[in-house]
Simulated scan of single mutants.
Amino acid sequence: MSAERDPVERASGDDQDLYDVATWEPRTALDRFSTWLYGGLATTGRAVVVVLAVLIVAAQFAAALGLVFFDRPVVAVYVLLSVVPALGLAAFVWKADATKREPLELLVVTFAFGFLFAGFAAILNSIFSGLFLGSVTEQSSVAIAVVVPALYFFLVVGPVEETVKWLAIRLYAYRSDRFDAVVDGAVYGAVAGLGFATIENAIYIGREVVAALEATGGPAAVSVGLETAAVRTLAGPGHVIYSAFAGYYLGLAKFNPENRGPIVVKGLVIASVIHATYNTVVTNLGVLTGAIGLPPGFVFIGFVVVYDGALFYVLYRKLKRYRAAYEQTGAETFEDDQREGDADEPGDLRGTDSSENERDRQ
């Protein structure tokens, strides 16, 4: 029962029936119909979001990439290789989870949603890019050329992309009883970031190959695809790290419902800012390399390694702190004892539809 109760309920005795006065549970046919209708609308709403995401992604591939992955399977291999570092980071976060391992079903669905929901981000980014970047021309001052894209990254790209990755967790895994620890949020966040990085890499690499095919022909296109894949290999791990932060705070919010909103916002702000900072610096590396006289590729690799490495260390420390608390408090033993005790209680509804409906109402 919620900690916030109506004054009548607080003052009443346990034997007083306050149904439809200050308390409520499904009793009548109308109550049960309302509960069924709410569950149906919620399920339909989630299904509509997923179907819309699938259609958007399919349209993106059809319009921008065509059949390039079928005509040149090597391009698909480039995409798979480009996400190996991101996969490694996600696996590390999964392994660092001190609690019981997350079920494959939830991991796969979260990855798929991260992959699919990237289409929403692409649409919103495109809508706002003209508003921000349309004013930047070759004749613009250095200040405008730096500040305006930075505003675009901090106000649009970072928040939009981190929010859709957050949605990939919130829509399914978060609602499950098997999301039963704060640290699980980091695991699902990392997996959502991996899904997002996979489709982003596929679109970037495929689009460059298509452009090269139209301009120069086959051999050059394959070379361009390989070069793009090399760059995207370094960009992918960032998505895993950023959304792992947002996911961790989503997990924290789940188990602190009285402060759920501010905690979720904190996680999204952290993820959005570090994401936007990365984009801003990478976009302006040309100015930096021109000033110091170093090869652009060298500076880019150095920045990515240092920046993502530092953020990953912070994430690692957060996961390590959780593990220490988990071990020091004897949480694993306590949870085992609780599960054994609950199993002995009659009417245990964990994992049933009624518990799922109760979470839906929260």
Rank of each mutant, 00 (worst) to 15 (best):
G158I: 07
V183Q: 12
A221P: 04
A150G: 11
A96N: 04
I144C: 00
N125E: 07
V136F: 00
A220Q: 13
R101Q: 11
R178Q: 15
V142R: 09
G134V: 03
G195M: 00
A112G: 10
P159I: 13
A221Y: 01
F132S: 02
S223P: 02
P149G: 08
N125L: 05
V108I: 15
L131M: 12
L131W: 13
G130C: 01
L234G: 14
I203T: 07
P103K: 12
L167M: 15
A221V: 05
G185C: 06
V183A: 10
I205C: 03
D184K: 15
V182E: 11
G119D: 04
I205K: 02
V164L: 07
R178L: 13
S135F: 06
Y204P: 03
K95L: 09
V156W: 03
A202R: 13
G130N: 04
A197Y: 10
L104S: 13
L124I: 15
S126H: 12
A96E: 12
F120N: 00
A112Y: 07
A121F: 01
V231R: 08
S126P: 07
D184I: 14
V222N: 10
A190F: 03
K100W: 07
P159C: 11
I127C: 06
A221Q: 02
S141I: 04
E227M: 12
T216G: 05
I127V: 15
A229E: 00
E227V: 14
V231N: 03
W94K: 12
V224F: 02
E161F: 08
Y204K: 03
Y172P: 08
N201V: 12
V160K: 03
